[in-house]
């Protein structure tokens, strides 16, 4: 409990520094908000155009895909708010600038990945939440008390899965320095997460809901809130992804022990 409070205090400090930094860079603030908005619009436009040609996408209706997009956007916003540092991991590992991470006051995974708080992404997070709530208005019972409970559960799953994947992909950089493997993994992951998982063949679906739980970023939480999967199935997925995360964090810490400053 003490450790949790300590890390929450660290998170608050990262947020405070992030707010101060962004008050200095106003254009950066604006461009990032506009960038993410463009990303949302491109996704919405793509699916709206597809639904002009069909009524169903692998069993997902237009209203359901809108909910799916809401989770995708919120997942992205969480990533931008808290996990932006993961983009720099490959470069920082190569340049050997991670020494101080060993001395910092907290779990190395938490301190490294959560250090770059983004205030502007909070604006995008609010927009994403707005879109999700708008999409849920079309789903009967989704905003009832039980529906809101499921929504909270689904969001917790999304944020946990985001963190697990962010940390997990960087492990590849320890093996192949300056390979950009983690960024490539994200590029592929985001491409896969951008579509409802049911469009993929069975084996691929199984992979995306188990060892590389990309579906937990958007498809699984949307399916749970929409009643496409049962609470029991959602609980099984959640438990598995929680355990996977614990394993991934341990693996990252173990890889970091082999870090030497002069890898480049």
């Amino acid at each position: 409990m003490n450790a949790l409070l300590h890390h929450l205090r660290l998170a608050r400090e990262f947020a405070r520094v992030g707010v101060i930094r962004k008050s200095q860079f106003r254009v950066e603030f604006l461009t990032q908000v506009v960038m993410d908005t463009a990303w949302y619009l491109v996704h919405i436009a793509t699916f709206e155009i597809l639904f002009a040609h069909t009524d169903s996408l692998a069993g997902w209706s237009r209203a359901e895909v809108r909910v799916f997009l809401g989770f995708l956007f919120l997942s992205d916003a969480f990533w931008m708010i808290w996990l932006g540092q993961c983009w720099h991991f490959g470069r920082e590992l190569k340049d050997g600038v991670l020494d101080s991470l060993r001395l910092r006051p907290g779990a190395s995974v938490f301190v490294y990945f959560f250090q770059r708080f983004s205030l502007e992404a909070c604006i995008n997070g609010a927009m994403a939440l707005g879109w999700l709530l708008f999409a849920l208005l079309d789903i009967p019972g989704a905003l009832a008390p039980l529906g809101l409970l499921k929504l909270a559960w689904a969001l917790a799953l999304v944020f946990w899965a985001r963190t697990v994947l962010s940390v997990g992909f960087t492990i590849a950089e320890f093996r192949a320095v300056n390979s950009d493997l983690s960024n490539l993994a994200w590029e592929v992951t985001m491409t896969l997460a951008d579509r409802p998982v049911d469009v993929f063949p069975l084996r691929m679906r199984q992979l995306l809901t188990s060892f590389v739980p990309v579906a937990a970023l958007s498809s699984l939480p949307a399916a749970f809130v929409l009643g496409r999967i049962s609470p029991l199935e959602a609980a099984a997925h959640s438990l598995w992804i929680f355990l996977l995360g614990v394993g991934v964090f341990a693996w990252w810490r173990r890889s970091f022990r082999h870090y030497a400053s002069a890898l480049g």
Binding site: N178, D180, L181, E187
Partner: peptide, 24 residues
């Protein structure tokens, strides 16, 4: 490794994943 990732694999994924969407 960087060459394989950056030069060989870049820009392939989005159109290829769309094949599954259009198949559906």
């Amino acid at each position: 490794a960087g060459f394989v990732v950056r030069e060989l694999m870049r820009s392939l994924w989005r159109p290829l994943v769309m094949i599954f969407v259009y198949r559906a």
